[in-house]
Design a protein around this nucleic acid. Structure first.
Lengths: 340, 340
DNA sequence: TTGAAAGCGCTAACAA
DNA sequence: TTGTTAGCGCTTTCAA
């Protein structure tokens, strides 16, 4: 079928072993002259070594999977992009999987990845499939969790400072004079939802405000529900004067209402969002958001994973936290001298 | 190292061939009783067949690459997502690559993909690397081009109706009373840029307007340059009253100026964008855009590719065109009764 | 410095 | 209905 190492060896008049040593640049030396001949043969035949055969032999595929809930979320797209960037130099390819928050979908993706003998997987877990995760790790497929720890799964995890970011956001709203602050939150079964909720609570408490339970809503990942919940939140009596949306997806629901009801931000309603996306800075009004460095996040996750893949670390699960910072924009402070 | 088919065969007390036929559900029959025993052994050992070994034998990897210029572009992310969706049922995995519009980067990604023996590649080409593309196809790696045809490469291609979409957009601006319409265009060396430019020109001509060359700007893919060019366009004297931005990226440059200069859309400047992204519908004012079905686009591309991978088609390169439609929003018509 | 050959885990042709 | 075995393209040990 295609050109193999035998063809190269034959053309160069050397053994297959020698070709191997030339291709891999080691581990044993090859005389300059022989190497030259081999390289010429490779060139001439347009020979491209088979990573498949190589993987079978070496038990390494130089492949890592990334399974996220939604690649359309710009945050996750950015993490995937940076992961790919960071993995490229070491020759790893990235296999992309979308779980859509579905455990069944996630299961299938994980099985496929294990079947392909991926060296590792970066996973934004649905929170299920513990057994499969455990079995994957047993089989030597290293695991790195993204922002969500999974109970009973002892894997490295990189998180955002969810609690701190939320605290800073809500504190900012309080300092801007708001006392009725609605929270549109992620499901609190997942770590980010829990963290953002507790940041919200701590900020209220530190300011001596009491929480109105009607102002705290938890939303699944359905866009429709976001929209509906945002509406309910705005309709609470007396209404909130500010909203903290715990994710960029959640913010969309709010923004649709703002538009439909012709609300002015921040006068009618102030808005702060966890997750900063590009559009927030050039919208009018621009949107105050909790931002963070997705490149750093990806870098920590890839670092953890490669440490294990390349046998530099084999200990207990590690946790890294990526810091967040509040970017104050017009949706809370009303006007900006400069574009942030 | 890991559990292999031999282990399963031994435990079940059958030959490796039988295990194979059970796992693959064919091609030869296995008695119900034996199958049962094998399945139990698989279960018990938590055996997961190696796709690597399978690929070496079958010369098929069930892997396709997708190489795009920027996965952060929501349009490309959507195409990647849909491609993954569509490929999953047939057991194909998607390897993601970001070329960043760099030919060198693209080259490396293509080489890696060929080395991994990807069954096919979906590519948004930089326009270079023809030889590598040609050689990849020679080697049996099927190729599907996304929106950009490459001269001298005889591969299937799916395109948007760039000319028609641009025509409709500019016609709409003209009908709204504009006569000085700026075009912020993609590089015209690439097919989409050419198509969108000629749609712009045809619309002007059909309306009896003459083109002012100062109102047509071509921009590379650098964000900075977008911003600068958008500024120059707005500063032409006499200034344009409407702008057609040939991509969502280009639109960002315009929107930053609109914000900084506190321009009102559409009164000070009307804006229409090729590429509809979610944010355009909930921004205020909402942005008029040329939209299309990314799912259909991905579906055509994946269809072309799988036809070849699965030997259903082996003829000349095919072209498909995905239609576009104008979505009129506030940035051109000033107010919408409903959210589009 | 180089070659020969075993074997990675699988599929499928050939035998039984 | 089932078992045996060659061989996919590579890496690497053992010998020369």
């Amino acid at each position: 079928m295609s050109v193999t190492r035998n063809d190269v060896a034959a053309l160069a008049g050397v053994s297959v072993a020698t070709v191997s040593y030339v291709v891999n640049n080691g581990p044993r030396p090859v005389s300059a002259e022989t190497r030259e001949r081999v390289l010429r043969a490779i060139e001439q035949l347009d020979y491209q070594p088979s990573a498949v055969a190589r993987s079978l032999k070496t038990n390494r595929t130089q492949t890592v999977g990334i399974v996220v809930s939604d690649i359309l979320n710009p945050i996750l797209a950015a993490i995937a992009k940076h992961a790919e960037d960071l993995l490229l130099p070491s020759g790893h390819s990235l296999i992309l999987g979308n779980s859509d928050e579905s455990p069944e979908h996630e299961l299938q993706l994980l099985r496929t990845l294990v079947g392909r003998r991926a060296d590792g997987v970066l996973l934004l877990p649905t929170g299920h499939n513990q057994r499969t995760l455990y079995s994957a790790m047993e089989k030597g497929c290293h695991l790195g969790l993204l922002d969500r720890q999974v109970e009973g799964v002892n894997a490295d995890c990189v998180m955002f400072d969810n609690e701190g970011g939320a605290y800073e956001a809500v504190q900012h709203l309080i300092e801007s004079g708001h006392t009725r602050i609605g929270l549109l939150n992620l499901p609190a079964i997942l770590a980010p939802g829990r963290g953002r909720l507790s940041g919200y609570r701590r900020a209220l408490k530190d300011a001596g405000l009491t929480e109105d339970p009607r102002l705290v809503r938890e939303v699944s990942f359905k866009a429709q529900e976001c929209y509906a919940m945002a509406g309910e939140l705005l309709d609470v009596d007396p209404p909130p004067t500010a909203l903290f949306a715990a994710s960029n997806r959640l913010a969309e629901g709010v923004l649709r209402h703002v538009k439909e009801r012709r609300l002015r931000m921040p006068d009618d309603i102030a808005l702060c969002v966890f997750d900063d996306v590009a559009a927030f800075s050039y919208m009018t009004p621009s949107i105050t958001a909790v931002g963070y460095d997705t490149r750093e996040f990806a870098s920590r996750a890839v670092g953890f994973l490669c440490d294990r893949i390349e046998d530099r670390y084999d200990g207990d699960a590690r946790i890294a936290q990526v810091s967040c910072r509040l970017i104050r924009r017009e949706s809370t402070i009303g006007s900006t001298p400069d574009i942030a």
